[in-house]
């Protein structure tokens, strides 16, 4: 029983990380109805930027801030330079463009920072937590981080006029434009925010698995599963989905399929959700009367 509790708690912690990346995916899906397959690779690159900043002598927390800011700006640049032309393209074309970014950024990471595994310190320190039993400081920190991100996101979306404009853009871009909302700029901003949230996920993953160019590929697939489970257009669903997936992964890994089949488990969850629950848990089913 104690083991189940322990696995559940650490599942919540790892699930928080999936939730972060899933939120990034959902933010983009909500505004553009496209899935950014390059989200994980963008995040990995940002984690390298943090490590690079540490190498320059910056304290870890400041390096993390630099990395998140870097992600924010580069996310906006990528949207402006590449993605912009594909917003209205078919899903196929868009995904091909994303795959180009995926392998491009992945090889760039390897090229600049090398292919070897790099140890990455946790912002929350290496010890066990004094607050929650069974969990390390890093795990508790991950959970707190996702709670903070959810809170900030809620404040932004529901209580600022920029957030309202973002929701309007997601809902009906033409009407938003006609109301004076600078939709193009908001799409750019959305990519920036998503990239920043994704970078946080990478900063949380790296201390657990070591940093290498392919670090986020497995996490990405879990984030896909989380986003689909929660409903691709619901940020709150992504968080719920992420945590559920983390717990399922831990329990199933220990008791059902074995830890060597975790990616296959993600495949199974993805196919099952697509089949049985295509809207996701919190996905939007708007009732529209005409």
């Amino acid at each position: 029983m104690q083991q189940v509790i322990q696995l559940t708690l650490s599942g919540i912690a790892i699930g928080s990380i999936y939730a972060c990346l899933a939120v990034a995916l959902v933010l983009i899906y909500k505004t553009t109805h496209h899935v950014n397959f390059a989200q994980g690779e963008m995040a990995t690159f940002s984690a390298y930027v943090a490590l690079f900043a540490v190498g320059l002598g910056l304290p870890l927390w400041l390096a993390a801030v630099v990395a998140v800011l870097f992600a924010f700006v580069s996310g906006m640049v990528i949207e402006r330079v590449v993605i912009r032309r594909f917003h209205s393209a078919s899903a196929t074309t868009f995904v091909v463009a994303c795959i180009a970014l995926f392998i491009g950024i992945n090889s760039l990471s390897g090229w600049i920072f090398g292919h070897d595994l790099k140890a990455f310190p946790s912002i929350f320190g290496a010890g066990t937590s004094s607050v929650v039993p069974f969990l390390s400081a890093h795990e508790v920190g991950s959970i707190v981080t996702v709670v903070v991100i959810a809170g900030l996101l809620y404040l932004f979306l529901s209580h600022t006029s920029l957030g309202l404009a973002m929701r309007a853009t997601a809902d009906n871009p033409v009407s938003a434009r006609l109301s004076g909302v600078p939709v193009d700029w908001l799409l750019t901003l959305g990519w920036g925010i998503a990239a920043a949230v994704g970078a946080v996920a990478a900063l949380l993953v790296a201390p657990i698995v070591f940093l290498d160019p392919n670090m986020m590929i497995g996490v990405l697939i879990y984030a896909f599963a989380a986003a689909l489970l929660g409903g691709l257009d619901s940020p709150w669903g992504a968080i719920v989905g992420g945590i559920l997936i983390g717990v399922i992964e831990n329990l199933a890994g220990a008791y059902v399929v074995g830890n060597d089949m975790k990616l296959s488990l993600a495949l199974l969850i993805i196919v099952a959700v697509l089949m049985l629950l295509p809207q996701g848990l919190l996905g939007r089913k708007t009732a529209t009367r005409v």
Binding site: R167, A168, A170, D171, N172, V174, S175, A176, L178, R284, T286, T288
Partner: peptide, 8 residues
């Protein structure tokens, strides 16, 4: 078609 922001 009114352009309602249906989800808001």
């Amino acid at each position: 078609g009114r352009g309602t922001l249906a989800g808001l």
